[in-house]
Design a protein around this nucleic acid. Sequence first.
DNA 1: CGAGCGCTTGATTGAGTTCAAAAATCGTGG
DNA 2: CCACGATTTTTGAACTCAATCAAGCGCTCG
Lengths: 197, 197
Amino acid sequence: MLDVFRSYLQKHVHVSDEQFQQLSKYLKLRKVGKGTVLLSPGEICEHSFFVEKGLLRSYTVDSAGKEHIIQFASENWFLSDRSSIYFNEPSDFFIDAIEESSVVFFDKEFLEYASEIIKGFRAYNDRMLHKHILHMQKRLNSLLGFTAEKRYMDFIKLYPNLTLRVPQWMIASYLGITPESLSRVRKELAQKNFKPG
Amino acid sequence: MLDVFRSYLQKHVHVSDEQFQQLSKYLKLRKVGKGTVLLSPGEICEHSFFVEKGLLRSYTVDSAGKEHIIQFASENWFLSDRSSIYFNEPSDFFIDAIEESSVVFFDKEFLEYASEIIKGFRAYNDRMLHKHILHMQKRLNSLLGFTAEKRYMDFIKLYPNLTLRVPQWMIASYLGITPESLSRVRKELAQKNFKPG
DNA sequence: CGAGCGCTTGATTGAGTTCAAAAATCGTGG
DNA sequence: CCACGATTTTTGAACTCAATCAAGCGCTCG
C-alpha cells in the first residue's frame, strides 16, 4: 500500500517512515480500470495523480472533436492540470487511464502539509515545476521547427517504453499528426532500416 | 530610475520604499539599442529582464537557420530563460531588443533577497511561474489544433499592442508560419472585412 | 539617392490530411 | 482454444494548407 510512492519520494527528498505515515492520511490509492476518466473539462482539477502502476494520459478535445494528447504518465510519473489546481479554474483537460492502473491521489493539502513537515519538499516541488516548463519548451520548439519524422524519432528516443505500450494513434495525437501519417512515417523509417527500440 | 519597475512591483506585492531601496542594489537599469543581444545560446542565463520601455524577444534558431520566436516582452513584462537560470544550464535561446529599450536586469540573488524581506514575494513569483505554464499550455494547444488563420486572430486578440509594433515576419515566426503565409492570411482576413485592432 | 529590408504577389512544390477500404491485431464469449 | 466483432494499423488516391522559390514594390535610413 503506497509503497511505490513512498520509495519514489524517499529517492528524491528525505522522508522518514514516521513522516510518511503522517502524510499518508492525505493520500488515497485507487485502482482504476482502463478508460476510467479522472478529470473532465469544466471541472476544477482537485487531485494530482501519481502512477504506481499503469498508464494515464491527459488530453484536450478541440471544437472539431479531435483529441490532442498533452502528456502520458506511466510508472513513477505525476499527472495533473497544474493551472487548474493553482488558479482554481475549470480545466480544459481530460485525464483518463490507458491501462488498468494503480494511482495515488493527493491534493493541495498534501502539498502544503508535506512542504511544512519535510525539509526540501518545497524545493523538490519547485524543481518539478521547472522540469515541466523545460519539457513544454522543448515540445513547443519541436512543433515549431521539426518534421513529423523528426518528432517521432525524438519521441521514441525520449520514451522508448511508451512507444511499446501506447497505441499508435495516441502517439500520433501527441505528435500532432494523424494516425495515417504516423503509419507512413514509420514505413519510411523502416525502409531506411531504422530499428525502433 | 527604476520607477517603472518599482511601481509595477508595488502593484503586485506590498513593498515599502525603504525595502525597494534595499533591493535596488541588486537591480541594474540599462538602456539597450535596437538589436542588442542580451543572451545567446550556450550561455547560462544569468539575468532576468524586466522591460520598463521598449520591446524584447526570445527565440531559438534551428539547424536550418530558421528563427522561432518564443516570446515577446514589451513594457511591464518579464523575460528570461527560466530553465537555464534554474538548472544552471546553457540556454538554447537568444534574447535581443526589437526596439531601443530600458531594461531592468536582476539575478537569482535579487529573487532570494526579495523573497526573504518581502512577504508575499515568493508567492507572487510562484504565480508568475504558473502563469507561464498556463500560457505555454495554451500555445501548445493552439499549435496542435488550430490553423494559421485562427492562430493569428488569437494573437491579435491577445496582444493587440504588439500587433502594431512587431514586424510581421516576427509575428509569423511566433505563429510558426512563414512571412509569406502570414501575408496571405492577412489578405484573406481583409477580404472577409476583418478589422485588426 | 540608392541599397537593403520588409511586405506582397504569383507559380510551384510538398508534407501532411482526408476519405475510403483492406489487412492485421485484440478481446471476449462460446 | 477458436471464432467473430471491434478496434488499430496500413495502404491508396485525391486534395489542401502552408512552404518554397522568385520577382516586384515601397519605404527608410545611411
